[in-house]
């Protein structure tokens, strides 16, 4: 689709530099101490003047991750410290908002540091609108990735000095699903993600009951003796509907495998190695691999079943671990 006309106005602004935004306060020990207290940081470089005096800085410095905090406006929106520009470095986001992309989510925060900042330094930053991407649709909705680069300076009589930079990328979007306010009084809860449960039918129940009992069962045709997996109501060879099960040794070899990286779907750990196991009895099955190192998984390696419990015992799955040949 051709881009809307108003977007050319947005694109024309790419590359533009916006003026200074000053910090309300000089870099100071109380704010550093409170930041460290809340973050759980106990590095004496930020907290212990005696220790800090022995370092190349000769005194306390601010934690590097605090850089951006110094220059935030505080409680009142757009209430910038004296001397700050009247320009709005975020005007592009406002334009996008006005054209139907109301939501925003931060995607990247890339801090880089020229040097650490010391007590008493007065900071400010300038902003460059670095990029506005093509329209993209993500799981959240449709919109634009907007990248701002903020350069942080320390004001000095002999000439201001750059101390660090923040590349900040947001996704400004029209939500795929309009977020519904959560009902008042509803119990706030962190959603708990569980593994999907297997669908179970009369043809397959024995397998999962066996797994719950710590047994790996294979279906066997009682007429011709053929083993089969995945289970089925009828023999693939002789079409008999009569069957029983045999307990597998749980030993086998890796016939093939994948290591899943993306998308990362909770509650699974990634990378997530999955094997196609050929049991010594001759049938194959899919199962998770445990105790393997990415890059060291080999087709043909010997594996042994073990049963793992997931989601507080709600689900048991056969998993396979490499063993010596």
């Amino acid at each position: 689709m051709a881009e809307q006309e108003w977007m050319s106005e947005v694109r024309a602004k790419v590359g533009r530099e916006y003026g200074r935004v000053y910090a309300w306060d000089e870099v100071n020990a109380p704010m550093i101490r409170q930041w460290c207290e809340v973050m759980g940081v106990d590095n004496p470089l930020y907290l212990d003047a005696d220790h800090a005096a022995t370092t190349e800085f000769g005194g306390i410095v601010a934690p590097p991750a605090m850089l951006q905090a110094w220059c935030l406006e505080g409680l009142h929106m757009n209430n910038y410290a004296p001397g700050s520009t009247d320009e709005n470095p975020y005007e592009v986001l406002k334009t996008l908002e006005a054209h139907g992309y109301p939501s925003v989510v931060a995607v990247n925060s890339d801090l880089s540091f020229e040097r650490y900042v010391k007590l008493g330094e007065k900071l400010y930053y300038t902003t460059r609108l670095d990029a506005v991407g093509e329209e993209k649709t993500t799981a959240l909705g449709t919109g634009y990735f907007v990248t701002l680069i903020m350069s942080f300076f320390s004001q000095k009589p002999e000439g201001d000095e750059k101390v660090g930079q923040l590349l900040f990328r947001v996704f400004k979007f029209r939500p795929a699903n309009v977020p519904k306010p959560v009902e008042k009084g509803a119990a706030p809860a962190v959603p708990k993600f569980k593994r999907p449960k297997p669908g179970i039918s009369d043809d397959t129940r024995f397998f999962w009951e066996g797994v719950d009992a710590g047994k790996l069962l294979i279906q066997r045709c009682t007429c011709c003796g053929t083993l089969r997996h995945p289970p089925a109501p009828v023999c693939i060879k002789c079409h008999s509907f009569d069957w029983d099960t045999v307990e597998a040794s749980g030993k086998g070899q890796l016939y093939s495998f994948v290591v899943m990286h993306y998308p990362e779907v909770p509650p699974f750990e990634h990378p997530n190695p999955i094997g196609l196991i050929e049991l010594d009895e001759g049938v194959r099955l899919i199962a998770g691999l445990v105790g393997v190192k990415r890059g060291e998984i080999r087709i043909g390696q010997r594996v042994q079943v073990e049963f793992q419990s997931f989601d507080d015992g709600e689900l048991t799955l056969p998993m396979f671990r490499p063993v010596a040949a």
């Binding site: 590097p64 925060s109 306010p181 509803a186 706030p188 959603p191």
Partner: peptide, 20 residues
């Protein structure tokens, strides 16, 4: 919750701080 979140959510500067 008005924003559709189940509860308050962590800001980015805290995530940076905890990463540090």
């Amino acid at each position: 919750q008005q924003l559709g979140s189940p509860h308050v959510f962590m800001n980015i500067l805290t995530t940076s701080g905890l990463s540090q």
